[in-house]
Design a protein around this nucleic acid. Structure first.
Lengths: 198, 198
DNA sequence: GGCACTATGTTGTCAATGGAAACATGCTGC
DNA sequence: GCAGCATGTTTCCATTGACAACATAGTGCC
């Protein structure tokens, strides 16, 4: 039955919808995603998405959730590197920036979804999990005496906030014509100076 | 004719639309703004907004532009304060955070609008103008020998990026239960240490 | 082996929306 | 006082998200 011209059941509709939605997201923002448009692309009827997502928002939330999962993986890989605090923090930060540059619309969607008052708990948890990698990197830095004492969450906030803000303040991956990539090192340098015990 | 039950011309429709749109924005996000809904509230026909805004996006852009203008005023007032670099930077940063906490949805809209590929030039200029206050604060700090030399734009980026990120990473005005207000001083402290000549 | 159950997709329909065109009204400058 | 223009209205259309009722197919149970 797999080869019949059009099997009644799509088979992987949920996956296919998410994939198509992400493509649409990257190429035109969350606003431009239309359930009917997606259905048309996939050759299914315009209401079939409802079997998998109660709501358009539910689809967007699912997209955000997968975003956090991939984000977590990317940060996790970077955090696993060895080296001193500075080099580890740099790796982590670059992973962050790379993700943000590769999936700008997705990242926006992720944080927007997280900030909705009725954000699903799953989403908040996925976000926590991803940022936990920063927490552990800081804790290791503290253990090695390279970082002042204090709540690692609060310390890590400084760098991540700076990176996140970097994205928002920049235009088209650049700030005043300078590629973000070049700025990462500089910013980390400044911040680490403020974190070093003295 | 001003007192007739319903004058044919509204008189301040553009202003009224912007005002109503901003109210809707603050209470439900840009998504929830509907031109027809706004028209109904104002008691005009559902197509009248088109006389003032070619497009829904045009209305949102106008909203963003006014946001940048008010933002610029707030930062300008803070930047005008006297004192040493740290106190001036703190004032500036608090102005930023206050604005962000008071108008979260507007701030998102502002940066989103600025990032659109076809963002109107006006918007970019308004954004530049607002952030120029940071530039001048840094330049003054350098002149007084309180800040390391270097392009003030790049230096100011660190603090503003951190603040902007703080907003994005926080949830409901708090980070790990700590009000953002309390974090501002801490973050500035860390960053200034990295900016101080040594 | 057959039959109910359930998951998945479809058809038909609705109200709301953004947008466009043609028209109405009233202000303003000559 | 009138011609032209700015502003608002009416009417219409295609698209959209959502809903209900129905169709199809795969699964488990006897």
């Amino acid at each position: 039955m797999k080869e019949s011209p059009r099997p009644y059941h799509h088979g992987h509709l949920r996956e296919a919808l998410l994939k198509a939605a992400e493509k649409a997201l990257e190429s035109g923002g969350a606003q431009t995603i239309s359930l009917r448009e997606l259905s048309r692309e996939l050759g299914v009827s315009h209401t079939s998405p409802r079997r998998h997502f109660a709501d358009k928002q539910a689809l967007l939330d699912a997209l955000a959730l997968r975003g956090f999962e991939r984000f977590e993986i990317a940060l996790g890989r970077a955090a696993a590197a060895s080296g001193d605090f500075k080099s580890r923090l740099t790796k982590l930060t670059r992973a962050y920036v790379n993700f943000a540059l590769k999936h700008p619309a997705l990242l926006s969607l992720m944080f927007e979804a997280k900030h909705r008052v009725d954000a699903p708990r799953e989403l908040l948890e996925a976000s926590e999990k991803a940022f936990a990698h920063a927490h552990s990197t800081y804790a290791a830095g503290q253990a090695a005496g390279e970082v002042i004492p204090g709540d690692p969450w609060r310390l890590s906030l400084v760098v991540f906030a700076a990176m996140q803000g970097l994205m928002v303040l920049s235009t088209n991956g650049k700030f005043k014509g300078i590629p973000l990539d070049h700025l990462v090192g500089e910013i980390i340098e400044r911040i680490i100076l403020g974190l070093r015990p003295r």
